[in-house]
């Protein structure tokens, strides 16, 4: 196994891997875009003074944290449609991209809400008291004093969550989502070229995630200045 065979494999597998990569990036980006607001809303519900809202938020986070993502994916793709078909809509169907998106969104939403909660709670009470003692309302204090500081605090964890969601998207392979891993598997099925193909899959993830990490440390530096 030398470098030239590795490169030959990349060239031969690239059309499939590129397809898969596009799907991987698509589900990851969409999931994160929807998960951030979902995380903020869940976090605010969790910190709310209304017990019902807190209960809903805690229940949701409990379910997501307490079950494997693969089980959630199968549940949403196979189990939920069966129930809906039996009870409400006999011809209900859900496609694999939608099921994967819902799974990834629910996961990332629950985890980002915990990230936001930790960050908001780590802003010292003195900050809120100083602002409130000047006569500034609770909402304005949240907007101008607490949240800006909380976002700085949780930025590294948010980037980390982006990386986790990107990697988690490969689990949707098991539902048949045509993402990178799925497409690599298709190529290996034809050629039996496991070593080179999976090496490239790993390299692709390493490259994307390294770029994300560099961007996040640059951003952190700028925020700290």
């Amino acid at each position: 196994m030398d470098l030239s065979t590795l490169i030959d494999t990349l060239v031969a597998a690239w059309p499939l891997l590129w397809n898969g990569l596009q799907m991987t990036v698509y589900v990851t980006v969409i999931s994160l875009i929807v998960a951030m607001p979902l995380g903020i809303v869940t976090c605010l519900m969790n910190l709310s003074k209304f017990r019902v809202l807190r209960g809903i938020a805690k229940f949701y986070i409990w379910i997501i944290r307490g079950t494997p993502m693969l089980v959630q994916g199968f549940y949403i793709y196979f189990a939920v449609p069966q129930i809906i078909q039996a009870l409400i809509m006999p011809d209900f169907r859900i496609d694999v991209v939608t099921a994967s998106l819902i799974t990834l969104i629910l996961n990332a939403g629950a985890y980002t809400s915990e990230i936001f909660r930790g960050a908001i709670q780590s802003v010292p009470d003195g900050q809120t008291e100083a602002s409130r003692s000047l006569g500034v309302s609770h909402v304005k204090t949240m907007q101008k004093i607490v949240l800006p500081q909380a976002i700085r605090i949780c930025l590294p964890s948010l980037v980390n969550q982006c990386i986790i969601t990107l990697k988690d998207s490969t689990i949707m392979y098991a539902l048949g989502l045509p993402e990178v891993m799925n497409q690599a598997r298709v190529y290996v099925g034809r050629t039996m070229d496991s070593f080179a193909t999976y090496t490239w899959v790993a390299v692709i993830f390493l490259v994307i995630i390294s770029v994300l990490m560099l961007a996040s440390s640059a951003l952190e530096k700028r925020m700290r200045a």
């Binding site: 003195g126 900050q127 003692s133 006569g135 800006p148 500081q149």
Partner: peptide, 20 residues
């Protein structure tokens, strides 16, 4: 309360300046 606090200033032991 907000209205009353507007003319009652407070200074804290830990300063509590807004760091951002």
């Amino acid at each position: 309360v907000d209205k009353i606090r507007q003319h009652v200033g407070m200074v804290f032991q830990q300063f509590n300046l807004f760091p951002h």
